[in-house]
Amino acid sequence: MSSLQCPIHPDANLIEDHRAGDIICPECGLVVGDRLVDVGTEWRSFSNEKSGTDPSRVGAPENPVMGASDLSTSIMVGFGASDSSQGLANAQRKNMNNSDRQMNQAIGIIREMSERIHLARPIQDSAAKVFKQILDSKALRGRSNEAQAAACLYFACRKEGVPRTFKEICAVSRVSKKDIGKCFKLILRTLETSIEQITSADFMSRFCGNLDLPIAVQTAATRIAKKAVELDLVAARSPISIAAAAIYMASQASKDKRTAKEIGEVAGAAEQTIKQTYKFLLPRARELFPPEFKFVTPVEQLPAS
């Protein structure tokens, strides 16, 4: 464009008409050059949605977990659809290979479960990638798609450092805790990997937050649980039971008391299990609390159960 100039007005600053693809002299209107290609975004929208924020006609980003690179066309059939539309949709389902069908279904299951327990999109994506690896390996062939998806989500939560309990995952799925556990073990074996052992500290912040407990109680409960493990007071007890019992002890010593039943509803632990674990902690309570903790209820007056 810099080499072009109007023969009548050589000093004029030429302008581009992007719509027509021409270069025009602003002084006399002479078309100096034509057929320019507009490299900008094409803003024409072919959608019935008038409220869309981006009407550009481009596809969705490539999805690496889909075998066809997610470039397939989805045919939706609604109420009153013609026989031809129904036939196209049926044909599409038949043409989709089994792996892509399973992958598509699993992504939907993972997303639905994640939304119910408020898991972020990166965790969902991580679970989908794990499912893709397992699907390609055919290691879990014969297991239900939902059990595999639930196990992948549990694995992703552990891997990303935001663990959820088996009970929490089981509560938002339609498969048993036993089936999810079996799939999880097979995933670890298939991927030949190991993930860090979960501890009571992994759940402390979430449990205390859901119970609306102050940071001082959370800090004390974390110290109690850690010290109890170091002193071998809670052998064979699950990290969740230890966390729940530590929260129960710390809250009972503060002004923000919570019952074992309230804690159990948040932690997914039985009230009786929390109290039994608490009894193991009680004889050594004085050395379990952090030195700076401000007692409202002295150690000697803590409940016996």
Rank of each mutant, 00 (worst) to 15 (best):
Phe289Ala: 05
Ile109Gly: 04
Lys167Thr: 03
Cys208Phe: 01
Ile15Pro: 00
Asp100Leu: 09
Leu88Gln: 13
Ile123Pro: 05
Arg101Gly: 01
Glu27Gly: 04
Pro283Leu: 08
Lys177Asp: 06
Pro298Asp: 12
Asp256Gly: 01
Glu300Phe: 02
Ala128Gln: 04
Val162Met: 09
Thr190Gly: 07
Val37Met: 06
Tyr154Pro: 00
Ser200Tyr: 07
Asp54Cys: 09
Thr73Val: 12
Gln133Leu: 09
Ala149Cys: 08
Lys50Arg: 11
Ser85Phe: 02
Arg286Trp: 01
Thr190Asn: 07
Pro239Glu: 13
Glu146Tyr: 05
Gln272Asn: 05
His118Tyr: 09
Leu213Cys: 11
Cys25Ile: 12
Asn98Ala: 14
Leu288His: 11
Cys28Leu: 11
Asn48Ser: 03
Ile187Asn: 09
Lys167His: 03
Asn104Ser: 15
Ala221Gly: 04
Leu231Val: 04
Ile247Ser: 01
Arg19Cys: 03
Cys183Pro: 09
Asp70Val: 01
Val296Arg: 11
Ile15Arg: 13
Pro55Asn: 15
Ser144Leu: 01
Leu302Lys: 06
Ser137Gly: 08
Ile123Gln: 10
Ile15His: 08
Cys25Thr: 11
Cys28Pro: 02
Gly33Asn: 15
Gln301His: 08
Cys157Val: 10
Cys25Val: 12
Ser2Cys: 03
Gln92Val: 06
Lys279His: 05
Arg284Tyr: 05
Ala269Cys: 09
Thr53Lys: 10
Ile134Thr: 06
Gly268Asp: 02
Arg93Thr: 03
Arg141Ile: 04
Trp43Cys: 01
Ala60Thr: 07
Ser173Lys: 05
Arg258Thr: 03
Lys50Trp: 04
Glu146Trp: 07
Arg174Ala: 06
Gly78Pro: 00
Cys6Met: 13
Arg143Phe: 14
Ala269Val: 12
Glu287Ser: 13
Gln276Trp: 01
Lys275Ala: 05
Arg237Asp: 05
Val37Ala: 10
Gln92Pro: 00
Met1Ser: 10
Ser47Thr: 13
Leu302Asn: 09
Ala260Ile: 03
Gly78Arg: 04
Gly80Thr: 06
Glu265Asp: 08
Asn98His: 14
Ala228Gly: 10
Leu153Ile: 07
Val58Phe: 02
His9Asn: 12
Glu27Asp: 13
Ser72Met: 01
Trp43Gly: 04
Gly87Pro: 00
Ile134Cys: 07
Thr193Leu: 05
Glu262Ala: 06
Ile240Phe: 00
Lys177Val: 06
Ala221Glu: 06
Gln5Trp: 03
Ala225Pro: 02
Leu30Pro: 00
Arg164Ile: 14
Gly40Ile: 03
Lys129Gln: 14
Arg35Phe: 05
Gly268Leu: 02
Asn145Ile: 13
Ala12Glu: 15
Ser51Trp: 07
Arg286Asn: 11
Thr219His: 14
Ala89Gly: 04
Phe46Arg: 11
Ser69Trp: 01
Gln218His: 10
Ile23Glu: 02
Asn104Met: 12
Asn210Glu: 15
Phe295Val: 07
Arg143Glu: 12
Lys279Ile: 03
Cys208His: 01
Ala244Phe: 02
Val32Ser: 12
Glu271Trp: 01
Asn98Asp: 12
Val217Ala: 09
Pro122Tyr: 12
Gly21Cys: 09
Arg258Met: 03
Tyr278Val: 05
Leu233Lys: 10
Glu230Pro: 00
Glu115Val: 00
Ile195Arg: 07
Pro298Ile: 10
Phe293Ile: 14
